[in-house]
């Protein structure tokens, strides 16, 4: 077997056990994604990385690469669906970029830029969500949480602390903190933990660093997220 898949007409190699996302990132092909982070076990929840494989839509971060797959990725139709999903994420939470200190470093915002999102389109929910500022070094602002579970995975799989979890279903689903009080201050979460820095939005931020890099010099201020994430993947391969 030659172990190749075809994405938008481009033939790319894959190794046994890789997902479509893994193979694409390794080959320098960008598939928009939010809940996926190559350092962690795929979660497959945001559906932004949906591609069409042999006529069926699947999440590329969880779908194993299989010999001969014909995959559509960067199409107007899929990007329109991805834009709609991103717009829903914006209106479902309270994402106000002008007063969020993550602005410019935020994956949600950057993906929206990449997809040419000019407005959130849908009616805003403006949900009432809790802010937890109890921890001396870390702020948890659920208004900006997109339920990607990256902090849950990081705390469980890397930090070995299980500080975070998701609770409730559907629109009632929310990020909860594993302490008797439910407050961050009563956990052993530290600012140096992976879980404190892995958040793709501004939901979990380390305090007192908000504007150490000024607006205008931030990760996505001059570079599209596709370029940033492909460069990161390339760098990672260089280390292997």
């Amino acid at each position: 077997m030659s172990n190749t898949i075809t994405i938008d007409g481009q033939t790319i190699p894959f190794q046994e056990g890789q997902t479509i996302m893994d193979a694409a990132l390794a080959a320098g092909v960008y598939i928009p994604h939010l809940c996926h982070n190559p350092e962690f076990t795929p979660h497959g929840s945001c559906k932004l990385c949906t591609v069409t494989v042999n006529g069926r839509n699947v999440a590329s971060c969880t779908m194993p690469a299989v010999e001969g797959q014909q995959i559509a990725n960067n199409t107007d139709e899929l990007n329109a669906k991805r834009r709609a999903l991103t717009q829903m994420l914006f209106v479902e939470g309270n994402h106000f970029c002008p007063f969020c200190e993550k602005s410019g470093n935020c994956n949600l915002q950057a993906v929206a830029y990449h997809l040419d999102m000019m407005s959130p389109h849908y009616n805003h929910f403006y949900p009432a969500r809790e802010v937890d500022a109890s921890h001396p070094d870390i702020l948890l602002d659920r208004n900006r949480c997109i339920l990607c579970e990256l902090c849950v995975r990081a705390s469980r799989d890397v930090d070995g602390k299980e500080v975070f979890g998701l609770s409730g279903r559907g629109i009632d689903c929310k990020l909860v903190v594993n302490s008797s009080s439910g407050d961050l201050v009563d956990t052993d979460l530290a600012a140096t933990d992976k879980a404190a820095s892995v958040c793709p939005t501004g939901a979990i931020i380390v305090k007192r660093h908000g504007f150490s890099v000024p607006i205008g010099q931030r990760i996505f201020d001059h570079k599209d997220i596709s370029q940033v994430q492909l460069e990161a993947a390339q760098k990672e391969r260089g280390h292997e």
């Binding site: 970029c97 002008p98 969020c100 602005s103 410019g104 915002q109 929206a112 830029y113 040419d116 000019m118 607006i215 201020d221 001059h222 599209d224």
Partner: peptide, 8 residues
């Protein structure tokens, strides 16, 4: 263009 589109 990319650098002209921002939300903040």
């Amino acid at each position: 263009e990319y650098e002209m589109l921002h939300y903040d």
